[in-house]
Design a protein around this nucleic acid. Structure first.
Lengths: 212, 212
DNA sequence: TGAAATAATAAGGTTTGCCTTATAATTATC
DNA sequence: GATAATTATAAGGCAAACCTTATTATTTCA
């Protein structure tokens, strides 16, 4: 229950409860109740009409949740060959059920990976965490060529959609065109052109192309 | 919720609801409610004052639950080096959270093991299942030497107790003495003598010693 | 600034899986 | 066969995490 909220918040700071509700697929009212409970437990701070922030304590727990989740993603992908788009959802269930001893043993077994198959960093056991500093694809100027660093989505259908178009961590792409009025982007990936809506492009974290 | 009940039932047939309650650490009243719900779903049949039996459907689900559980036990033991006594409890949580694809991928990864680290057989993907046919240690006559085939316990403290005394699958032991009035057994294991209460001895499944 | 949009809160409801207490039915045992 | 022990069932409660429907604050922006 906690963690999902955290996972979302961990992005940056001050998250609107409406965003939380959206992410968790619950009504705004439920999200508010939830936030109150978690605030009461000292895990987050809710400033009405402003948003929600994690406390130190909350942040630590959230980091651990994300660590567990992403370690499982690595295992499921590298060893069990689970399909990429479903890693998140499956790792998410396992995460709930993972004791600390298992988390650390898993980290050792996997050789302490630093990123998950979606390209997102894995927090350390002590909770420390270097967030991605890349630019989301929707903010790239037309003509630029970039490398995809991570996919920040969690919904299986979104992941599936991006997977089918081979918009994956490590790939290189060029923004060919950005349609006006917040219209979709046209990209070139692997010599093929694809069209991607802006709302999906927001999930794609890029970094400057090393060869450029 | 279902599965725990199943896991218990799967032993043989017709389980008293009181045994279920005990095993699940709930009150008999709660166990009864549970049994009603599961009967309504067609997973078990409750004959009042007689006990509970699984239906075909129930048995299939139960087999799958046990399969998942024991595959995880193998993984946790062989790859993550989790301590033996805690395998059951940890695998139990993971079990709840395991999708069918993960179960089968795990079986492949592990090389389709046939027994778990506690020596219990792992059901096949189709639900088929060869139960252990050994004799419980409490029924062994004094003087006999047998090999431990499996430990049928699930409680961590029981497993820990047996582990500390090295009563583990594969070990060979001799029953030195059985105290009268259902008193404890004296056993010889690895040249050392230990004393084991009858209620614990019931968890130890043995087979005739091959060298005898 | 005032209306519309967004956010918060209040009130009351549902489901699930447990609980306690009490009573009724059945089975076991002397 | 009567009493004791076990099982079952009935009735009512609790907590968690949702929900809907209102109502009230606050912001935002034309």
């Amino acid at each position: 229950m906690y963690l999902k909220a955290m996972a979302e918040l961990s992005n940056h700071e001050a998250v609107a409860t409406a965003r939380l509700a959206e992410h968790l697929n619950v009504t705004p009212v439920s999200a508010n109740e939830m936030v109150r409970r978690l605030s009461d437990q000292g895990l987050m701070i809710h400033t009405p009409y402003k948003g929600v922030t994690l406390t130190e304590k909350g942040r630590t727990i959230a980091s651990n949740v994300i660590r567990r989740q992403r370690l499982w993603e690595c295992f499921l992908y590298d060893y069990l060959k689970i399909e990429w788009a479903r890693l998140y959802e499956m790792a998410c269930s396992l995460e709930h059920a993972t004791a600390p001893e298992v988390t650390e043993a898993l980290a050792v077994f996997l050789g302490h990976p630093t990123v998950c198959p979606r390209g997102n960093p894995i927090p350390e056991a002590d909770g420390s965490f270097t967030p991605l500093n890349g630019t989301t694809l929707n903010a790239i100027t037309v003509g630029e060529t970039v490398t995809v660093q991570a996919i920040n989505a969690t919904a299986t259908d979104v992941l599936q959609y991006l997977y089918e178009r081979r918009v994956l961590p490590g790939c290189t792409l060029t923004v060919i065109e950005a349609a006006p009025l917040q219209g979709p982007l046209t990209l070139k990936i692997n010599e093929k052109e694809i069209v991607l809506g802006l709302s999906l492009a927001k999930f794609v974290i890029t970094k400057p192309n090393p060869t450029e």
